[in-house]
């Protein structure tokens, strides 16, 4: 080491110059309650179970989402549609129980990709924190979107033409 390196002072002053420069940098903090971080339109957050245009549940309880789920977070119980329930369920079979364990879910979006009925989508909403583990098991009450047309959840950003084209492609195993 040279004399100047050995007495450290030039190095210390240089370090102080660098830290001083940081004083005037733009702060990277997002001031949370006032400012919310912009989410991408195709953010993969909380799931929604879609209804069709007439307000009927699209899900037919085929179980492909549960099979596709790498975290095994999805369970469901299927039931047959009774006469007179046509305005509630689109297909002849529907899910009486549909549960996603949000603590297991890794928000990969495979369920959405596997779904042949365009019934499950991931949304920009994030899963809320809870005080008890049990509350993270979301049932149909939390997942199915409201039937009121004004409060329907828009998933058109995730359902792009490319996605639809991809889903029609029968050469992929999970689209069969």
């Amino acid at each position: 080491m040279t004399f100047w390196e050995r007495i450290y002072f030039p190095a210390i002053l240089n370090g102080m110059r660098i830290t001083f420069g940081h004083l005037f940098r733009r702060k990277t903090t997002v001031q949370y309650p006032e400012v919310k971080r912009e989410f991408s339109d195709i953010y993969r957050g909380k799931h929604v179970l879609k209804r069709d245009d007439e307000g009927r549940e699209r899900c037919t309880a085929c179980g492909l989402c549960a099979v596709a789920c790498p975290a095994e977070a999805i369970t469901m119980v299927a039931a047959e549609r009774k006469p007179g329930e046509e305005h509630l369920y689109r297909e002849e079979k529907y899910a009486t129980v549909y549960e996603i364990n949000m603590l297991r879910c890794i928000f990969c979006g495979d369920c959405e990709e596997a779904c042949p009925k365009e019934a499950i989508f991931l949304t920009k909403e994030i899963v809320k924190s809870e005080y008890e583990r049990g509350k993270f098991i979301y049932g149909k009450a939390e997942l199915v979107e409201p039937s009121d047309p004004a409060r329907r959840i828009d998933i058109s950003k995730r359902q792009t033409p490319e996605v639809l084209a991809f889903k029609k492609n029968k050469k992929f195993k999970h689209n069969k």
Partner: peptide, 11 residues
């Protein structure tokens, strides 16, 4: 400390 680390510090 916050400013030196590009943060706001307690506010």
């Amino acid at each position: 400390a916050g400013w030196f680390q590009d943060r706001h510090g307690p506010n």
